[in-house]
Amino acid sequence: MSATVNSDRKPVVVNGGPRAGEAQAARRERVLVSVQWLQENLRTPGVRVVEISVDTKLYAAGHIPGAVELNWNTDLQDQVRRDIVSKEGLEALLSARGIVPSDTIVLYGDHSNWFAAYAFWLLKIYGHADVRLLDGGRARWLSEKDGVQRPLTTEVPAVRPSVYTAHPADTSLRAHLVDVLGIVHTRSAGLVDVRSPDEFTGKVIAPPGMSETAQRAGHVPGAVSVPWGRAVNEDGTFKSDDELRELYRTAGINLERPVVTYCRIGERSSHSWFVLRHLLGVPDVRNYDGSWTEYGSVVGVPIER
């Protein structure tokens, strides 16, 4: 992807000039921290670090000092019906980890923060004010390419339990099957499929070896393919706002209109949801967490390949 955004090479002016650039920088600062910032703030009161990795062996093998863990499978999902964790469930999780609503929660994980982004989405649904992602995630912390070896520990921090009270779920951040079917018929929102190209075209139902799958392969009619990984640089950090904006525009997504993201089980799409909602500031972005494992199994819904 080219770093040059304007084909006519005029200075980039997005949303009205230099002030907009400042607004963008401020927007990033509210939701992203760098490895340098985190290393300097590991002991700052009110900063709580949480690891959520796809590979749940990683936390025990070694984590950022002071970090607690959330398990994407057993903690963040309802364990009986297919749903996100309930408000009460989330309150219990955060209370047990000694987190309070005024804390700055810094999330990180493997695969450029897939499930960290999912947790970010979930925490926003339940109204936590200050949540941020570690830009580049766990791999960026591990990387020594900048000549710095950052600490990892196997020590699990002792925490004093708190009483965490969450807000009622903000349903405007989440799309359900019925919403997606509505969009298929009315095209009232852009649909972004963030899975790999082979999943989008229906060559495979799911990547090899994945246990969560669907009955049929393909994509939701009208969806465009923007694989999640195109939003990040080689080191897993997010691309610049201009590059990201161009990425979605080129794919045919109108950023002035509502957008819905989906993938297979809702984690990679949380990553793209984060990009659209919190880096680019698109006002109405919803994550369809039912994603292909739901849509691709429903009887009678239209599918494109």
């Binding site: 450029s112 790999s196 994945m210 999640w228 990984g229 080689e234």
Partner: peptide
């Protein structure tokens, strides 16, 4: 687990662990 759509040169996966 093998990465679903790995980034080239990523420090995830076996090297990361």
């Amino acid at each position: 687990a093998d990465a679903m759509c790995p980034l080239p040169g990523s420090e995830d996966g076996t090297i990361g662990l």
